[in-house]
Design a protein around this nucleic acid. Structure first.
Lengths: 252, 252
DNA sequence: GAGTGGTCTAGACCACAGA
DNA sequence: CTGTGGTCTAGACCACTCT
């Protein structure tokens, strides 16, 4: 009996027959993603080989390969010829490439330094409830921090997290690489995010934090980050000074 | 004799052997992309079937399929089960999805209306020569236009084109969908683009065009668009008012 | 019904990593 | 040397489109 369960295949004249349903490789992908979400394998750990998965799920190696290829395209796993298939890790290099799009106009991109200037746990407001799908009265962890690139403080950041997903976070030291923390300590791997960008004039408080005149134009980045399962996990608003930096967006 | 030429395969004990080289499917892709660039098939036209291509190039259908799948992922072709594989077209719907990232904060995204306010053919300055790889003295076609969304003028745009690639363009009516024109009239399909975003304060002239106060924050989008062959084809600077609009960037 | 792309399998061989 | 993922082939059948 296959772990994939009855797939709607029935014997007929000795040949397999597929009834109306999702393709097999998509079902295999679902099973494997489910296991990633459930933490069956830890970040950085190797998955079973294609052959083993094929035998266990009772499909051909080619079908497993197609599922894993699609997961590779979505950066859920990383494959190395001769070594194996590994759960993707949120190291700084990957985040710099995938999630941090601000780069200096001249010079190399680098991961920003961060300084936390305040944390609080408060009741979610209406927009936060809508973003995270929370009920009235739910708690939100708020983090404010300043980030610097090339020694210059250029980002004022406000982060909101549903408190229920991040127990005992406030007391901690907040690391520079938050997404690594989410993954290792809370099992929440950030898989994708939507960013909405606007040009705004800085208010008095943010201008003071960034040590520029009030009214200075800044790039406001509104990011909703989602876990593997598609759930909204983090809402982050970043105010960025872009005199010497730019946001890079590749369209293809 | 195969059109793919000698692929480094030699007979040995009746078995084919692959020597150190690029994978076959990548070579097949190169051949097909080459034909797209050369305009062997027009936008919207059907390519030969997988079977025909496989026979012509002397590879298996699976190898052709892998090449076509990768071209589908890069949006160079579109495939329809039961109908065939077609050269991608730059219609407004596709551009809206792929290249136009500005959307209203509330309501549906829509393709902007455009009004050309000036064109000129002038000598390329140093930054234009660098962007397009032109020699000193090369000519540049410059287009200025205003674009509106939901009846409100919110974008002031400056477009620079290497004149050598777009003969007899200035006399024409400039259509709203420029990328469609590049493809149909000049055989230049825009395949991808890099956008660099900054928040800036509008100067007196641009503010007057957009009917806002000088110093109003605007999103400056600096786009370099590339053709199928990777050549820089268009440099476009857009100043966008983002009071009621935002730039959407999906990270995944 | 004929022709297209889509799925699935099976098997062979290659390139690479590590014991 | 063994085991891994990567490439390539061949063949079967399915789902869809058009004539």
């Amino acid at each position: 009996m296959s772990i994939m369960g009855d797939r709607g295949q029935i014997a007929k004249d000795g040949k397999a027959m597929r009834l109306a349903q999702r393709p097999l490789y998509a079902q295999v992908r679902e099973v494997l993603v489910r296991r990633l979400v459930d933490g069956v394998w830890s970040p950085g750990e190797a998955l079973p080989s294609e052959m083993e998965l094929a035998a266990e799920l009772d499909v051909s190696q080619g079908t497993v390969r197609k599922a894993l290829d699609s997961m590779t395209a979505d950066k859920l796993v990383v494959r190395h010829q001769g070594r194996g298939t590994f759960v993707a890790v949120h190291d700084e290099a990957r985040i710099l490439f995938q999630f941090f799009k601000l780069a200096p106009d001249a010079g190399e991109a680098a991961f920003p330094e961060s300084r936390v200037i305040g944390t609080a746990t408060e009741t979610a407001d209406e927009s936060e409830r809508r973003a995270f799908g929370l009920r009235a009265g739910a708690k939100i962890i708020r983090i404010r921090r300043l980030r610097s690139l090339a020694g210059r403080t250029v980002i004022a950041e406000h982060i909101a997290l549903p408190a229920a997903l991040f127990p005992r976070l406030t007391q901690d030291e907040i690391p520079n690489n938050l997404y690594g923390l989410y993954a290792t300590r809370y099992g929440l791997a950030i898989a994708r995010a939507e960013e909405r960008l606007k040009a705004v004039a800085l208010g008095a408080k943010d201008a003071a934090l960034l040590r520029v005149r009030p009214g200075t134009p800044a790039l406001r980045i509104d990011r909703l980050a989602r876990s593997l399962s598609g759930r909204s996990v983090e809402w982050r608003v970043s105010l960025c000074l872009t005199q010497e930096f730019h946001y890079l967006s590749e369209l293809d």
